[in-house]
Design a protein around this nucleic acid. Sequence first.
DNA 1: CTACCTGCAAATTTTTTGCATCCGG
DNA 2: CCGGATGCAAAAAATTTGCAGGTAG
Lengths: 137, 137
Amino acid sequence: MHAREVLASSGHHRGAARDKLIDLLAAQDCALSALEIEDTLRRDGSVARASVYRALDLLHDHELVTRLELGDGVARYEPADPTGRHHHHHLICEQCGQLVPFDDPGLERSIHNLSRRLGFVINEHEVTLRGNCADCS
Amino acid sequence: MHAREVLASSGHHRGAARDKLIDLLAAQDCALSALEIEDTLRRDGSVARASVYRALDLLHDHELVTRLELGDGVARYEPADPTGRHHHHHLICEQCGQLVPFDDPGLERSIHNLSRRLGFVINEHEVTLRGNCADCS
DNA sequence: CTACCTGCAAATTTTTTGCATCCGG
DNA sequence: CCGGATGCAAAAAATTTGCAGGTAG
């Protein structure tokens, strides 16, 4: 993640808590909730819950993480992809509970088309499927 | 809404709170949060918050309402459409804050296609766009 | 009568804020 | 130094649960 540079160049200092959080998210490629992040970081030196939320907020403001709400009332975060190359969406398997990322060019094309048809300017979009993953079907 | 019949035929009694809630949702065609529903119902005779959540849960279990989480940490509910005829998705306008419903056959087709391509069984899907609505563009 | 429904209040869970202090540049 | 960054504890906000009646069928 070039997150640190982006933040530095907009006048933000560095700090232990956010630093660890950035590394954790960069390693993980799937979405984590704030509380999961807190638990993981707490093990390895104390990191306050508040710092986790503040760091996620900041990263989200700078579009360095994507915020997902998948229907269980918990927000999840994953590294945003500035190149758009790893852009993806999610299927929640109702059988095994897994969160399965996928991408689909046809879907992206449709969203682009409808944006023109309906006169919307779309800055962000999120698609969530619920059903059975390939393994559970 | 045929909600009352569905619930009756699965052994549920009727009650004042849920009854009013069903009417409210049926009238409204856009999504409301639990707390908005509570406020509205409270004005016209006391309805407890717990009853609102319990009724929404029950309706959701029977697929009579759709539950949306649009990114602000609040769940919203709208009547589900068993015919599929009023199936739609949402744009949140970042300018004026409005929730704008839309539908798009191309989008639906894409989702159907990717389901086959990836081997998913899709029971439900939800698309959320963030950007500017037609008026604000 | 019995099972379901309701209101109230209290408990949980997730997220936010206030404040004193620490630290990066 | 100064403007962030952090931890802690307390506060808010959203949702859930326990319980003692009430009511539909």
